[in-house]
Write a protein that binds this DNA or RNA. Structure first.
Length: 465
RNA sequence: GACCCCUUCGUCUAGUGGCCUAGGACAACGGCCUCUCACGCCGUAAACACGGGUUCGAGUCCCGUAGGGGUCGCCA
């Protein structure tokens, strides 16, 4: 049997972090087993679905490298087929019309709750004859689920889960307006698309029992289910916008790399021994559902940062340069002319080790392309004492005598000055750093000096004298 | 409330009855390196929710308790 998985988001908002992980697991599982990974947009709720959300989700997936193997299926397009299946069920006596009004159902639920029972539909129209139907009311179609016995799901993550059929009510297949509900569309589409493995968040675990009943009612094979635990926020509560439930594009904006985010998401709820750094190809080779844990996990930005720093260092400079030039150009203090661009390019590897995100990288690199005179941060300002300025004047003269403007020669010249003045290297290096970068923290100062070039470096030194 | 699920360091996890004196990673802390900040390296602290069983032996199996989560829509 060829494995077919699907990621099926509803387009009511951006692709959030939990959805991204669900997509990743579906993708990885399909790839690992040499199967297919499909996308389906669950837009049966036309009122809440938007074109913008569809675009945001598709773009987010593309960024993460998780686009489907085929064009996405839009559930809304299957309306006629969904209705047809429901009619077939009614014809077979496995579904029926229910004429309850929403108000009537509300009353029923309130009463059930008051008695301490689950607020399930009580099946009052299950055995009534259509001739008893009230006039002028459009009925919904409900599935006739078994009254006795139990439904068992052998979940690939959660294990064997059993629920009494008395806990499963006759849920709605078709609304009064004839449109299918999510519960119904999912089953029909999963069947029609040949889905063999349904991998989704465990908030759907309870739905699986209902859906299994619907598959059985149609005499369709029930796919394998794998309900993966949800992701919680840093405080253990449900993910909210405050801590992590942002769209993936927000992470992109914050300077995270797609590879890093995927690696992080992969390790959230899944493990392979002590392995932490797992590139895509390795993940495809290793991933399987038996490695997925059963408890919810918390989203931890600090670990994401660490992973991102790692991937940043692994990514070739040329690729990174493309990623940050737009960020650099947006800065008001920067002019990205050819010379500046070249300096940024040469300085890249030196700043990489200091950055966790592309934002950090752009910040750390900006001084190479900044216009003079440089803005000084407080600590840099504090380094520029009168004494330090005197040293810088002397240094400017000393640098005039350096024939080859190379890192080695510059280091020798600076060290020599420090020795002459009988001060520690830091006493010269720190004010120099302030003058050259406007900051108290930067890559090695000789590297900075070399990359800036004689003219620019001397000008920056003289600016502060 | 009913039903379902979960519970190993602060966090992500390894662990599938003896290999566990519970391992790794992030974070924290200390140190080395050093012109700063990082990177890197070395080290420290830190967990089997609780109570009963089963067993020669339990983090691992069973029951209960507590805590957490999810679901109970003509939403998905």
């Amino acid at each position: 049997m060829t494995v077919v998985t699907r990621f099926a988001p509803s387009p009511t908002g951006f692709l959030h972090i939990g959805g991204a992980r669900t997509a990743l697991f579906n993708y990885l599982f399909a790839r690992h087993h040499g199967g297919k990974y499909l996308l389906r947009i669950e837009d049966t709720d036309r009122a809440r679905s938007t074109r913008e959300a569809v675009d945001a989700i598709l773009e987010g997936l593309a960024w993460l490298g998780l686009s489907g193997d085929e064009a996405p299926v839009f559930q809304h397009a299957g309306l006629a087929r969904h209705a047809e299946v429901a009619r077939e069920l009614v014809a077979k006596g496995r579904a029926y019309h229910c004429y309850c009004s929403p108000e009537e159902l509300e009353t029923m639920r309130a009463e059930a709750r008051a008695k301490g029972r689950t607020a399930l539909y009580d099946g009052r129209w299950r055995d009534l004859d259509p001739s008893e139907a009230p006039a002028g009311i459009d009925p919904v179609v409900r599935l006739k689920t078994p009254l006795e016995g139990e439904t068992v799901i052998d979940d690939l993550v959660q294990g064997r889960v059993t629920v009494q059929n008395s806990q499963i009510d006759d849920f709605i297949l078709l609304r009064a307006d004839g449109t299918p509900t999510y519960m119904h569309s999912v089953v029909v589409d999963d069947h029609d698309m040949g889905i063999t493995h349904v991998i989704r968040g465990d908030d759907h675990l309870n739905n699986a029992f209902r859906q299994a009943q619907l598959f059985k009612a149609m005499d369709w094979p029930v796919p394998a289910f794998a309900h993966i635990p949800l992701i919680h926020g840093q405080d253990g509560a449900k993910l909210s916008k405050r801590h992590g439930a942002l769209g993936v594009e927000a992470y992109r904006e914050m300077g995270y790399l797609a590879d890093a985010l995927c690696n992080y998401l992969l390790r959230l709820g899944w493990g392979h021994g002590d392995d932490e750094i797992i590139p895509r190809a390795q993940a495809v080779e290793w991933f399987d559902l038996d490695g997925v844990g059963r408890s919810a996990s918390r989203f931890d930005m600090a670990k994401l940062d660490n992973l991102n720093g790692h991937y940043l260092r692994e990514t070739p400079d040329a690729e990174i340069a493309d990623l940050i030039s737009a960020r650099l150009e947006e800065r008001p203090d920067v002019t990205l002319d050819a010379a500046a661009r070249q300096r940024v390019g040469r300085g890249l590897s030196g700043v990489k080790a200091r950055a966790k995100t592309l934002v950090d990288l752009a910040d750390g690199l900006a001084f190479y392309a900044a216009r003079r005179p440089l803005a000084m941060n407080d600590k840099a300002q504090a380094l520029l004492t009168d004494e330090a300025r005197g040293l810088m004047q002397a240094l400017a003269s000393a640098l005039d005598t350096v024939a080859d403007w190379t890192e080695e020669a510059l280091e020798a010249a600076v060290r020599e000055l420090a020795e002459q003045r009988e001060v520690k290297l830091g006493a010269v290096a720190q004010p120099l750093r302030a003058a050259l970068t406007g900051s108290n923290a930067s890559p090695g100062i000789f590297e900075v000096l070399a990359i800036l070039g004689r003219e620019e470096a001397q000008a920056r030194i003289k600016d502060i004298c």
